[in-house]
């Protein structure tokens, strides 16, 4: 049994997965498609089926660029990016489960890296 359930994901994201008509446009337009194990359309389908654990364990949740392409282009207004974020939050909100830790940062810096990159990465990958 899943420790986390579908309801939490749906509530946290505000997404109605039933609106999806399985058209695949979100995955077709996702810039991270090739890097993902599960693609946006699969996120929608698997959340509906309640396969939360599988998704939470997948590195795909860290590949989303929050570029809103899937949100903008979905003909049904399903907003798959919000599901990915909700799942990622379920992981990183747990103690010690931050994907990006403060100690990791110095290794990633270079003299031109804008603050924006660090702040946004922390916002997305840690709590």
């Amino acid at each position: 049994m899943s420790k986390y359930d579908k309801e939490q994901v749906l509530c946290s994201s505000g997404v109605n997965v039933l609106k999806c008509m399985r058209c695949g446009k979100c995955s077709a337009t996702c810039p991270s498609y090739d890097e993902m194990e599960y693609h946006p359309h699969e996120f929608v389908y698997m959340v509906e089926k309640g396969q939360i654990d599988k998704l939470m364990a997948s590195p795909s949740i860290y590949k989303c660029l929050s570029c809103y392409a899937c949100v903008e282009r979905c003909p049904r207004g399903v907003e798959p990016a919000k599901l990915v974020e909700a799942l990622r939050l379920l992981v990183i909100r747990q103690q010690g489960q931050n994907h990006l830790k403060a100690d990791d940062i110095p290794a990633l810096l270079d003299e031109d890296l804008p603050q924006q990159a660090i702040v946004t990465a922390l916002r997305k990958y840690s709590k």
């Binding site: 810039p31 660029l65 392409a69 946004t120």
Partner: peptide, 19 residues
């Protein structure tokens, strides 16, 4: 209007490079 990769440069440089 396609994404440059954004913050993923901190996580997966190759993906950022690709985009």
């Amino acid at each position: 209007n396609e994404c440059c990769g954004g913050y993923v440069t901190m996580e997966d440089k190759n993906l950022a490079r690709k985009k």
